[in-house]
């Protein structure tokens, strides 16, 4: 018994190290969506294993200890103090080892999710009953009708607030969500790896049209996105390369040039 617990403890400790060491190479983009899927697989195995072990033992007992004679009584083991403590402490430490393994790997993913990579594109999101506004920072604003438009391959960070009730911005594809509320600014970030259209939707109950507060994340190639965000505006005398730095100055022009946002 004791050996097994030591073994399990060691395995757990070793996995902690493995997690710590197996960090993504420097410079590589940290894709927490992929890490989520990996960790999910591990956790399913973990809890699945525990469940099957306990379930099978229980089932085996249920079948093999059926009553055979009417006057039969159970003969469960009587424990000495030491035995009874062993039956408490050993399982407790095994469970704790597993808990710490889970906590450590959960924590690691958490850091991936919460530490925003440098150079992420920032979008300001305002939620209200029952629509969303995405503000790209140069005066360009889209609503849930048009969707959230982001460039492929570039991390996007959403700075979010609500004008009324609590809402939650959820993109199932990227395995991420965070609440919006009045009085605070919250954030989340994600990496749109592939082009395409993905559902985003509201996941904090906000009244009648709660299930109607949805739209699409539209991931388009970076070049196309730049063209959309800063359409070439000849009357503004600014070099295209400095587009980002000039964003503020260019804002009114860009808005005038773009089709009405909403």
């Amino acid at each position: 018994m004791n050996k097994r617990s030591i073994l399990l403890g060691t395995v757990a400790a070793a996995s902690l190290f493995a997690i710590g060491a197996g960090d993504a190479g420097a410079g590589a983009l940290n894709d927490h969506t992929e890490h989520w899927k990996e960790l999910w697989g591990h956790v399913l195995l973990d809890i699945g294993g525990i469940g099957v072990v306990f379930g099978l033992v229980a089932s085996y007992f249920l079948v093999s200890y059926r009553r055979t004679r009417d006057d039969e009584v159970g003969k469960g083991p009587k424990f000495s103090f030491a035995q009874s403590m062993a039956w408490a402490l050993i399982p407790a430490f095994v469970f704790m080892a597993d808990d710490f393994y889970l906590a450590a790997s959960g924590w690691k993913l958490w850091n991936d999710q919460r530490i925003v990579p440098e150079g992420a594109m920032e979008v300001k999101l305002t939620g209200r009953m029952w629509s969303w506004d995405f503000d790209y920072g140069n005066g360009k604003v889209t609503t849930n009708e048009e969707g959230l438009i982001v460039p492929q391959g570039k991390p996007v960070v959403m700075r979010m607030k609500s004008e009324d009730a609590v809402h939650s911005f959820f993109i199932p594809e990227y395995r991420i969500k965070e609440d919006l509320m009045p009085g605070r600014v919250t954030y989340l970030w994600f990496l749109p790896k592939d082009t395409g259209e993905y559902v985003f939707t509201c996941t904090e109950f906000c009244g009648t049209n709660h299930s109607n507060m949805w739209g699409k994340v539209k991931v388009i190639p970076a070049a196309e996105f730049d063209a959309w965000l800063n359409p070439p505006a000849p009357e503004v005398a600014a070099a295209p390369a400095e587009g980002e730095a000039m964003a503020e100055g260019a804002a009114p022009a860009a808005e005038a040039a773009a089709p009405a946002g909403h």
């Binding site: 989520w36 960790l39 999910w40 809890i47 993913l109 958490w110 395995r175 969500k177 965070e178």
Partner: peptide, 20 residues
Amino acid sequence: IGGLTGIPLAMTSLTLHLAE
């Protein structure tokens, strides 16, 4: 089943997807 599915929910980072 009920208890063990609480475990992924307990993991903050997994719950950023699973919540609600």
